[in-house]
Nucleic acid binder design. Sequence first.
RNA 1: GGGUGCUUAGCUCAGUUGGCUAGAGCAUCGCCCUUACAAGGCGAGGGUCGCAGGUUCGAGCCCUGCAGCACCCACCA
Length: 950
Amino acid sequence: MLDKTYDPHRIEAHWYQRWEDAGWFAPRMTPDADAADGGAYCIMIPPPNVTGSLHMGHGFNNAIMDALVRYHRMCGDRTLWQPGTDHAGIATQMVVERQLEAEGKTRHDLGRHAFIDRVWNWKGESGGTITRQLRRLGSSLDWQHERFTMDEGLSNAVREVFVRLFEEGLIYRGKRLVNWDPVLHTAVSDLEVISEEESGHMWDMRYPLTNGTGHLTVSTTRPETMLGDCAVAVNPEDERYRHLIGELLELPLTGRRIPIVADEHADPEFGTGCVKITPAHDFNDHGVWTNHRDEKQIAEQPHGGLINIFTADAAIRANEPDEGDLIPAAYIGLDRIDARKRIVADLEAQGLLAGVRDHKLMVPRGDRSGAVIEPYLTDQWYVKIGPLAEPAIEAVETGRIRFVPDNWKNTYYEWMRNIQDWCISRQIWWGHRIPAWYDAEGNVYVGRSEQEVRDKHGLSADFALEQDPDVLDTWFSSALWPFSTLGWPEDTDRLKAFYPTSVLITGFDIIFFWVARMIMMGLKFMDEVPFHDVYIHGLVRDAHGDKMSKSKGNVLDPIDLIDGIELKPLVEKRTRGMMQPRLAEKIAKQTRREFPDGIPAFGTDALRFTFAALATTGRDIKFDLGRIEGYRNFCNKLWNASRYVLMNTEGEDCGGSGGELELSAADRWITARLHTTTASVREAIDGYRFDLAAQAIYEFTWSQFCDWYLELAKPVLTGEQASEAAKRGTRQTLVHTLETLLRLAHPFMPFITEEIWQKVKPLAGASDGVGGETIMLAPYPVADPAGADPDAVAEIEWVQHFILGVRRIKGEMNIPPGKTLPVLVANASDRDRRWIEMARPYLDFLAKTESVTILDDESEAPESAIALVGDMKILIPMAGLIDKDAELKRLDKGITRLRGDIERIEKKLDNPSFVDKAPAAVVQKERDRLTEQGAALAQLVAQKTKIAAL
RNA sequence: GGGUGCUUAGCUCAGUUGGCUAGAGCAUCGCCCUUACAAGGCGAGGGUCGCAGGUUCGAGCCCUGCAGCACCCACCA
């Protein structure tokens, strides 16, 4: 027997342990001759940061993946859910650097080798956190094959891919403008730069013409970059300046002369129409420079016009020996902000500042450091992306890869068709070292190892080679995830069995970072798409729709929802490590207001069911505690219903004895409903509509099984007059329905279903081939089209209407539900009479009927409150119970509703074009309804007249 | 500037090729500790489906325009 109360904590821990120890998460590698083999099904986990911890996004993402994986496993597919973690280069390195900072050290104090050791240590220390938390969620991942992006095999795959791409000319090294993070001292890709509008200023600066005829005024948001100007551009069509093209300007503060060039980039409508060109510090300017670099006046500029003025810290650099005073001494060493102030002041002093005004501008910041990103000239490695993007676009166009919801393909196309070469080198230490070596002359050699390079190029052991200090962008290794985790470049059994994978489950935020790159790399190296479907889910937001973030203090930890948390530790957790004490105070206050009693423990199943229920397509989800509370209650409901079933079946004859078996209409009805539900749930899951699946399970369990079937079963189970055969039939139906329901719900609530199933299984017998050790390997229910039972459904619906009619009268007349009443029935057909006879135990039990008297002549009836079941009237004598006025009001309400309805239908049917053009079935439906409503109306009106006359 | 999504009950959301009286959960209001469950049972109230047009016999759903919200991409120095 189950415990009296549902306690998620007690059942969850031990079941997970059991599942994992038994090896049930591992995929079957070969087709099973006995089982219906559905082929391979595989999902790759989006690898979380190895040193990270679980957040709501992971919770959501994994709840969906596990539901799919458990469903397919139960369907008999050879199912693999591949686990693993990501080294998350910059993010992880930053964490360790922050630890060092607390000790007053930098990574340079340790040196590269010791620093990397330290990161590995940190990984060892905190690396188990997230995988432990994934286990708490019940995730059925194949842990025996867990991978890490920097383990030996995956590193090998990374080098292999790099070398092959390089040999094909798809990886190259070049000096270009990159997004430079002056705090982290590394290049980052376009995707890692977040531009947001900020308040700034626009400065108008005068550049004097060398011919003494005046000056041009240029506007800029970044005056300090003027030290690197190589020209001023005007639009060739601009009448105001056309005659000045080719003239020279004196670049203030430097004494350098720069030309006026004609370029479309200059918009005559904007500002003064004159643009300063700083090719080494602005992407657009660099483009202009490219167009004009061969013109004599530009080519004669220092460095051909491409003048870098910054250090890696974005401070003004010193002059090189051969540069003379290219950079004026006054500014050297100043940080870009100080330099700006100084330059503006100096220009003003010289009368060259024409004005300054407030200006909103988009400021690019590094997504990790928050530092303002600087366009900066450096040597970097790039992937030539065009040739890779083309087949990747085609794979989606031809439907080999399908986005769910479909509209995300537009986002994908948009980016892929405008894609830029991918800067893959990072000037950090934690990551895959670029497999390239340089000799003293700077020649580059690329190979899988230094030895391979030496062998290939015939370099002797004493020939000095130095490996490129840079590491690869984290996403480079992530891009290989779908095949590298399966053993590539080896041709392993797992690779053969599970690539291409079935579906990728992820958020829209990494479509570019990850999804697109996996598609490109998969097609390139496997010659096949990495997955067939991409299911894109929304973001988990807080109850108000705000993004969860540490700084807003509105983060919910999935583990806290599972285990519960007291207010005090919750506040402590939310305010820990806050930089600003004032912010911490505000968050503490807000948390105390929102969770005055902390967060109660809801359990994993409730959390997972909530995620499933909220997983509507193409929409972010607002996580409201009310929802999870509701689904915790649902778990409780299932628990208690199961207790009831067990109470009545354990130790009883559930039909296994071979004794005579009789199935009641209720038994057949719930069985029919179970088939319908099974069909909807399967259809919903197959269509990635987890919300609909959850809803169907919830509705069946609560509103059908608990509210009606268990109640209808009671008179049979406890009734004196019910036959043994009927009791056996009901017991069998109870057990069978519950057992099937548990399997149906298992992918969404793995723990509670397993716990209960273990108790129910022995009673259910092996009739459904469910004799196994665990529900997670039991077959998923199949809907039998023959399971529909229209007769039973009609009869039970009639019973329900009868009961509802009586209850409604009681409810509205404030008669206690438990009070038994004599009930009269008039205008009963033969079928009604038959059903009344059969349903008496149900009616007595659920409608609390004291007696049910069939009137052959309605005129015999005393004054009564009335309810209709089709044409049949249910009459409850009013004497002493029912208020005349209240009953009249009730009748009026019904009459008004019916009249309105009838009016609408008549209008429709009077419209010749409706009768003419609408499908016959629709018209007939309306006609039937009119008849029905008309009869009902007549009954109510007659009743009203009768009552009113009293 | 380009794009995507959203707007349905007090709140959070369903509503799948257009067709019964637009549904659910939560919240609200009554009546109930009925022997599985008060984390419960029974009943009730609550919506001119963002606005304005159009197509259609018929529109929450399709088309056009507008408004508001959210997000993505690009960017004028």
